[in-house]
Amino acid sequence: MSDTQRLWNDYAACWSAEPADRLAALGAVAVDEVAYRDPGTEVGSLTELAAYMAGFAQAFPGHGSASTRCWSTTTAPSPAGPSSAGRTRLRRPA
């Protein structure tokens, strides 16, 4: 499995992670100022994305990572420099 696929799988797993573990799991795969947008919302931080994921999990129990099959990630340069290597800003394709 490629590093990109592993990163994607880890991100997808965040959608169905236990609430107490979600923020830490997101921190392992995304920068603090993660950008996430879909037709119903737009968030700009790990905390906001974790809260959105929690609401999604409550509204659609058991459908967490299945919903990410049509999504992708884009890697963006980070102002934090090399310490953020291997992390990604997550965005829905245009």
Results as ranks from 00 to 15, higher is better:
M1Y: 13
S2H: 15
D3N: 11
T4H: 12
T4Y: 14
L7A: 10
W8N: 07
N9H: 10
D10M: 10
Y11R: 06
W15H: 12
S16Y: 02
A17V: 02
P19C: 06
D21L: 08
R22T: 01
R22L: 00
R22M: 06
L23R: 05
L26R: 13
G27Q: 12
A30W: 01
V31N: 08
E33V: 03
E33N: 14
E33P: 04
E33I: 01
V34W: 01
A35H: 15
A35C: 12
R37I: 00
G40I: 14
V43L: 04
S45W: 07
L46G: 01
E48A: 02
E48I: 01
A51E: 02
Y52Q: 06
A54H: 03
G55S: 03
F56Y: 15
F56A: 07
A57G: 00
Q58T: 00
A59Q: 08
F60D: 11
P61C: 05
P61S: 05
H63P: 04
G64H: 11
S67C: 12
T68L: 13
T68F: 13
W71F: 12
S72R: 10
S72A: 08
T73W: 14
T73Q: 11
T75K: 15
A76K: 07
S78I: 09
S78M: 13
S78Q: 13
A80T: 06
A80I: 07
A80N: 09
P82T: 06
P82S: 08
S84R: 15
A85V: 11
R87H: 14
T88G: 09
T88D: 13
R89V: 08
R89G: 02
R89N: 09
R92M: 03
P93Q: 09
P93K: 08
